[in-house]
Each structure stands twice: as C-alpha cells, then as structure tokens.
C-alpha cells in the first residue's frame, strides 16, 4: 500500500460509509420485521422514530459516497507518477485487477443510493409511511453492495506498490509493463455517433410521452440508464477526442483535469444525476396506486423526469459545443 494521505482519506471514507450503512441496515431490518402502523405500541413509536435515524445515516453516507467517487479518481490520477508507464488515472487503475471494478462498484452504489433517497423523499410525502417496505428492502440490497465496494477498494489500494528506485539497475524493472501505456481505445465513432443520437432521441421521446400521458415510466427509466451507458461509451469513443483536440486520446479521466477547464465535472455530474433521477421515475412507478400518494407521486415523477431531461440536454449541449467549436474534425 502507498501511504498517501489521499489513500488514507479514501480508506477512512469507505470505512465510515460501511459503518453508517451497516447501522442503517440493522435498523432497517428491525423496522421491516416489527412494523405495524395500526399498532400504537411503544415498539411501533420507537420504530417510527428510528426511520429518521436511518434516513439521516443513508443521506450522509450517500453524500460521502459521491464525494469519494471523485476523490478516488483524483487519487488514482495523483498516484500515476509512481507507476512506470501509467500516464494518468487510466494507468493507475490498471495497476491491479481491482482498480476498474472498484470504480464501477462506486458508480453502482451511487446510483442505488440516489434511488433510495428518491424513494425516501416520496415516502415522506404520504402520511402513512406508504413506501416503508420497498424502501428498507432496497436498503438491505444497498448494504452488501457498499461492503463489496469497500472490500474492492481496500484490495486495490493495498495492492499498490510504487516502482521506486532499487539499489541495482533500477531502470529496468519497468520494461514488462507495456500494457499500461496502451490507451483506452473505445468503439469506433462510426457506430457510436448514430447510437448516441438515437438513444438521446428515444430518451427525449419517452420523456415527452411520460410528461404528456403519464405513462411509460419504466421505459423512461431503462432509457435513462441506457443513455448513461451510451454517453460514457460515446465520450470515450469520440466526444473526448474533440475536447482533447487529439485523435488518439480516449481517456475518460483527463477531462477532470485543470487543463481541460474541469469540464469533466459538469459532464459526469449531469450524467450521474440524470441517471439517478431517471431511475427514480421508474422506481416510483409501481407505487402510484397507493392511496396516500395518488396525488403527490405523479407530480414528483413529472418533476424528476423534467430534471433528468434537462440534465441530459445540458450534457449534450456541453459536448455538442465542444464538437462544433473544436479545431479537430474527425
């Protein structure tokens, strides 16, 4: 392990998140088993009080989780100088087999935790805790995900070893590491360009349909996830080439650097936020029949769908402007 302050911060953060969610999960389990809204017993009152604890714990854990996603990428970026052949975060993450799985696990936990918060928000709109069961079942899914992510990240960080000078012919040990230099290539723009615009079109169409007819929330959700995946693939495949103004540089992480005006933050922020909101629309869909939510839920879904569409359009606008204004023409 490299004893970098950033590494220690990451370990601390993931330990805290695990601890918070374990506590929340334990409370959630108690609530799931003992919940009976009809009863006015002391146990029930105590459980109702505990719902506040759970939501406070999860909300804090989610904020830490999202921040630590960016801290993770930045730490990987900062450590790249210590590995022969690594040019940026892409190289550091490839140093051992746990780097990329950790990143994916972090993104997945962010998405699920975001959806949980949307469910929670909807739950507070009804007077009779209408979503208490689905909410705590989802929480029990989230807990093992976060634990797995913590384990993956710890394995990744523990496996890092700086290529420092040795007392004999130092410069030669890096020669077998050619693999790290290999750039992420991505799919050819020929395929990805139409794929991106088609997905965007379908996503917007589903959104308009949803806002007009209040139907198709499931399709909208699936499309929002598809939009995230296709956008990231397109970003690696061709959008970033325009931003870097280099036909061979496919790195998705350098976008977060100062050299490119930190454009990666709005890009990934809109993508991740849009996907969470879009998934939330679908997650709420099965509960529209609940009596106490029959008014609030469609309104909330419409707001979420609106925001998801706006975020998708902001993303498209950002990368589109770069595509048009970039001196690079593919």
């Amino acid at each position: 392990m490299i004893q970098h302050p950033g590494v220690l911060a990451l370990l601390l953060a993931s330990g805290l998140v695990s601890l918070l969610l374990l506590a929340a999960g334990w409370q959630g389990l108690r609530i799931l088993r003992g919940w009976n809204l009809q009863s006015g017993s002391e146990v029930q009152l105590d459980l109702e009080r505990r719902t506040y604890l759970v939501s406070t714990l999860v909300a804090n854990a989610l904020v830490i989780q999202i921040l630590s996603l960016f801290l993770f990428i930045f730490t990987a970026e900062g450590l790249h100088t210590q590995f022969v052949g690594a040019m940026c975060a892409a190289g550091s993450l490839a140093v051992n087999a746990f780097g990329y799985p950790t990143l994916l696990a972090k993104i997945a936990t962010c998405l699920v935790a975001g959806v949980w918060l949307i469910l929670h928000r909807a739950d507070t709109q009804g007077h009779d805790y209408p979503l208490i069961r689905p909410k705590y079942v989802l929480l029990l899914i989230l807990v093992p995900m976060v634990l797995a992510e913590t384990w993956l990240q710890a394995s990744y960080l523990a496996g890092l070893k700086a290529d420092v000078m040795t007392s004999c012919c130092g410069s030669l040990f890096g020669q077998g590491r050619e693999g790290l230099v290999a750039e992420l290539a991505g799919l050819p723009p020929r395929i990805m360009q139409p794929a991106f615009w088609i997905t965007l079109g379908a996503f917007v169409a589903a959104g308009v349909l949803l806002l007009r007819t209040r139907r198709g929330a499931g399709v909208f959700s699936v499309l929002s996830l598809a939009f995230l995946l296709v956008s990231v693939t397109s970003l690696v495949s061709f959008f970033c080439l325009y931003i870097y103004e280099l036909p061979t540089h496919h790195c998705p992480f350098c976008l977060l650097q100062r050299e490119y005006g930190f454009v990666g933050y709005p890009i990934y922020g809109t993508l991740l936020g849009g996907a969470i909101l879009g998934l939330g629309v679908g997650a709420l869909a099965p509960f529209r029949a609940r009596k106490s939510l029959s008014e609030a839920l469609p309104r909330m879904q419409a707001r979420l769908a609106w925001s998801a569409l706006v975020l998708a359009l902001i993303f498209t606008l950002i990368v589109g402007i770069w595509m048009v204004l970039s001196p690079l023409k593919l």
Binding site: I2, Q3, P5, Q82, D163, V164, M165, G170, S171
Partner: peptide, 27 residues
C-alpha cells in the same frame, strides 16, 4: 557494472518518500 538511473525514477522515488512521510504523520 553500470547502474543507470532515470530522472523519472528519481522523481518517482521522491514522490514516494514524501507521500510516505506525509502518510506516516497522518497515521
């Protein structure tokens, strides 16, 4: 009998040492 030392290696070693010292103090 030659020992070539690259500039990048020196840089890497310095970074590792400073990181290590900083991390040690944090611990």
């Amino acid at each position: 009998d030659a020992r070539p030392i690259l500039k990048s290696e020196i840089l890497r070693t310095y970074e590792a040492i400073f990181d290590w010292r900083g991390g040690l103090m944090v611990v």
